[in-house]
Design a protein around this nucleic acid. Structure first.
Lengths: 220, 220
DNA sequence: TGTACATCAGTGAACGCGCGTTCACTGATGTAC
DNA sequence: TGTACATCAGTGAACGCGCGTTCACTGATGTAC
């Protein structure tokens, strides 16, 4: 059930290794897991395949992860980090000279834009980050942060706070606003990646993304 | 990976049957498939389990469905129908005496409310309806309609058309508006069913749902 | 500087699981004469 | 009204698959003396 792009396996790093010890198997497994998630989403993060790519026997993984689930959580964490970093990069492009109100609005847009781009450019990682993999089995994992130390959801909250500080968003509308904004962008990401908007050109995608962000800005 | 409610299997209809012929196996398989989807989402629609519940040998299913995929599509179709019917029921409650503008607004709200309720009350069916199951293998299936003969997406379109007719929504904003509204409601449904809003009380859920619909109405 | 030994990363083999699907079949039905 | 036969729904047995995980092991490393 891989809904994502099929990637040729021909270029997969061969399991060449001369030493008995691998050296950095945990990292290798994690990286393999990330590649799998990138290409096929959470279901594609398969323990045995990760060990194959690391050039190691299947059960070797258990020296570094207690179960498949733990590997998946590590991958998920990495995906969230990657998204946070994209958001930070987009935030860094907000022009300095603007008024507080404009700057705040631009920040919110930057968050939304980064989110939508990430969903489209890294669809597999995106779905891995936000598909909840059987939560009953473990505590909620602290969402991994970007360079600023803030996770994607916190970055959104920060942007909304700036809107309030700049007088653009009435304070009484602030509580819970992240969920409204998040919903809009999350839903569009679904439509764009696995829904009816899948076949749009990238210009059309950008256009509808900006319209959606307009709606959020006006409607919040 | 069933993220949904676990349902006791004790009450499952036993495979009692005296005749060699089943009589209505196709229907029985479909119904079993719907129950499976209801309880566990699309991944839970497992051919062998459906035949078990129908009291029949696994390969008997192939007299009625060419593959698991076809059964899944049939289930998906039924799920879309169920949603359409909920929307129609909610639309029927829109007060008659209101002005065209108010009636149009209420129609859009009815659509959104029905969608969000369906997502929460029939989470498994909801996810089955909107998870695209490997589209590469078949043509898009015409989304099954409700009693009015219109599918959920068309019902949303109708509501938006009424907004335009009533002068509430400027005509130039009409094209593509269904995707914006759909996104918002789709995203919130994700947050409510498998995201951070999962643990909210039903009053809180309703409240945030209505806020989201406010945002859409204002922002469109 | 050299040796004994504990540590523990990776191996080898195997497990049980449940799945979708194929094959050649058997048995009840309903239609043609 | 009775019988022959075609149809085809459901059976029985088996397939290959890949998965996560467990067990007892072996071999390289690095530390203590």
């Amino acid at each position: 059930m891989s809904t994502y792009k099929i990637v040729s396996d021909a270029t997969i790093s061969p399991p060449e290794r001369s030493t008995y010890r691998h050296g950095d198997l945990r990292r290798a497994l994690l990286e393999a897991g990330i590649q799998l998630a990138r290409a096929g989403g959470p279901d594609a993060v398969v323990l045995r395949e990760a060990t194959r790519r690391a050039g190691v026997v299947p059960n070797a993984a258990y020296r570094h992860f207690a179960s498949r689930w733990e590997l998946l959580q590590a991958v998920r964490s990495a995906a969230l980090s990657a998204l946070a970093r994209r958001m930070e990069a987009e935030l860094a492009r907000v022009p300095r000279g603007a008024s507080p109100a404009d700057a705040a609005r631009a920040s919110l847009r930057a968050i939304g834009t980064a989110y939508l781009r990430f969903a489209q450019e890294e669809t597999g990682l995106f779905h891995t980050a936000f598909a909840i993999p059987d939560e009953t089995r473990g505590e909620p994992i602290p969402a991994k942060a970007g360079n600023s130390g803030r996770n994607p959801f916190q970055l959104l909250g920060d942007a909304l706070d700036r809107l309030v500080d700049a007088g653009v968003l009435p304070p009484e509308r602030r509580p819970g606003a992240e969920y409204l904004a998040w919903s809009a962008v999350r839903g569009l990401a679904m439509l764009l990646t696995e829904g009816p908007l899948r076949r749009l050109t990238s210009a059309e995608r950008d256009a509808i993304g900006q319209r959606l962000l307009d709606m959020v800005e006006k409607g919040l």
